[in-house]
Design a protein around this nucleic acid. Structure first.
Length: 285
DNA sequence: ATTATTTGACCACC
DNA sequence: GGTGGTCAAATAAT
């Protein structure tokens, strides 16, 4: 009896791990379909918007250098953004973990007068190696629902987009052709690639769970629009769903193994919870 | 030991 | 002088 239970639980864990993978795979397919054939009034055109009307701080008019700048070896003067409006992009996301395919290194954080949230400053990780001048700002601009705005400056001269190489289903990214998604089969669960961002949340968007209510109402509608029609995901879940004896939801520790993550994160007992996962990126970014 | 992040200070621009 | 962007030393993480 006890042996049977152990076997069953192992099978159940294994099955659920498998179903989690299937789920991810299904979502990846769905996203790809969505990208290839955007629905009318879809979000793709909302994800990135041209910053032709961006604030003056990035406009070239304010960046004319003083004719007699002091020559300092390590000047802290504000660098010329060296960007025209076509090179600036803005991306609003409910997910602070939004992965755009590039590696960024944080170099500063400031309290912005007009906002109660701090703004983080990032530059391309290959800033030195490839003299890449791409930068971005990230700031929470809205609380309920949470909206994180990422503003991109400059362009990548490093030509290194990890999404192309390591990820399957991603949202539209700067400088990436959607067709690149055609050839990859890798499913990424947000564990390895984006560790630089795990300081915010873990790869499976655990922190999102705490905010799920608010996200569900408005902002995540953009994702909902995609996922609500997804029969694949729903079927995977419904066909394989088994109630779990554990009713608690415990966020994984960052030191946990992959299996631990599945145990704690994916073995949810409530279909409704799966439904909520359906709204989130599931690390497939 | 190496790499990444945090944070106070510096600086340019308005 | 206020504000925001960047630097770089200190600190944390790996």
């Amino acid at each position: 009896m006890a042996k049977t239970n152990t076997l069953n639980s192992m099978n159940t864990s294994h099955e659920k791990a498998v179903q989690a993978i299937l789920y991810g795979q299904s979502c990846a397919k769905r996203l790809k379909l969505q990208l290839d054939h955007p629905i009318a009034g879809g979000r793709s055109d909302n994800l990135f918007s041209d910053l032709s009307s961006r604030d003056s701080s990035s406009s070239s008019s304010s960046s004319s250098p003083s004719p007699s700048l002091p020559q300092r070896s390590h000047s802290k003067k504000r660098k010329n953004n060296n960007t025209n409006s076509s090179e600036n992009w803005r991306h609003d996301s409910p997910d602070p973990n939004y992965y755009d395919g590039f590696l960024w290194r944080k170099y500063g954080q400031k309290t912005i007068k007009q906002s109660k949230h701090q703004r983080s400053y990032y530059r391309c990780s290959y800033n030195i190696d490839h003299a890449c001048g791409a930068r971005k700002h990230e700031q929470k601009i809205k609380d309920n629902p949470p909206v994180y705005r990422t503003t991109y400056f400059g362009h990548h001269t490093c030509n290194i987009n990890h999404k192309v190489h390591n990820q399957d289903a991603g949202l539209t990214t700067v400088g990436e052709s959607v067709n690149d998604l055609e050839n990859s089969r890798m499913i990424w669960f947000g564990k390895d690639l984006d560790q630089e961002k795990e300081s915010h949340t873990s790869g499976l968007s655990i922190s999102v769970k705490h905010e799920e209510g608010s996200i569900k109402e408005e902002t995540m509608d953009q994702y909902r629009g995609i996922t609500s029609h997804d029969k694949d995901c729903q079927n995977v879940i419904k066909e394989n769903h088994q109630p779990s004896p554990s009713g608690s939801y415990t966020p994984p520790s960052s030191s946990g193994s992959e299996i631990d993550m599945f145990d704690s994160d994916l073995l949810v007992e409530d279909l409704d919870l799966w439904d909520r996962y359906d709204m989130y990126d599931f690390g497939l970014r």
